[in-house]
Amino acid sequence: MSNKVENNKAWFLVLPVFVLVAFSAIVPMMTVVNYSVQDIFDQYTRVFVGTDWFRDILRDDRLHDALLRQVIYSLCVLLIEIPLGIGVALCMPKKGIWSSACLILLALPLLIPWNVVGTIWQIFGRADIGLLGWSLNAMGLEYNYAGNPVDAWLTVLLIDVWHWTSLVALLCYSGLRAIPDVYYQAARIDRASSWAVFRYIQLPKLKSVLLIGVMLRFMDSFMIYTEPFVLTGGGPGNATTFMSQTLTTMAVGQFDIGPAAAFSLVYFLIILLVSFVFYTAMTHADKDA
């Protein structure tokens, strides 16, 4: 028998946080669940419809398309930004004034708000007054993000790469600096090639940092809203209308609160699943290390 006194009163200190989270997340979430099973006409008139909204939105082609575009977009973002970020981090100077200069330069895009980035690129890409749009057209390349879906897509992708590759690069840079020098010394003794150093020392050591980077970039790109909205408003057609914009149109534009609630719950479940998988992978990567 141990004589240790157990005192769990400190748990009450969590109470304020719990109240805050309840106010800002749990209660609104419950309300969304309530909305999703009803057809709401006004404050006093609402009809219970069961799972009809879920049936509708799960079979809605418009939403399938938005989901498909969203998944492809997020995958493209990850496929470009992660290797590029690693590459930039590897090329950065290791110490001295230039490393500080690089860090500041890389951090600059991260400071700019989404809608400003969207506006910058909206003007930058215009064929009549934008530097990028004008130059491309002057070189004989048809480029018009307002009319051509492929151009709009590439522009939205480019915006995200421009805006957020720095984040991955900064994360990787800090990960690389954390590798002890003995690993490199051992590699030199073994006369390892620079590829072998990258493959067997740097990449494994970057694993946990990269998982954070992948998770952040996935979640951020999965809820992208502002950039395509500012650039073309989701157009041309529906080419750059992603999930969050579809949801906003439904909920705030058309006031279809029931279907929008059902849709946002499905959206939530997708993000919950992916985050859980990433989180599990991350914590188990730490356990293995």
């Binding site: 209660v27 419950m30 309300t31 669940v33 309530n34 909305y35 099973v37 009803q38 219970f48 069961g50």
Partner: peptide, 9 residues
């Protein structure tokens, strides 16, 4: 009432 509760939820 504003949370629009139903029996199933």
């Amino acid at each position: 009432n504003w949370m629009a509760w139903t029996l199933p939820t």
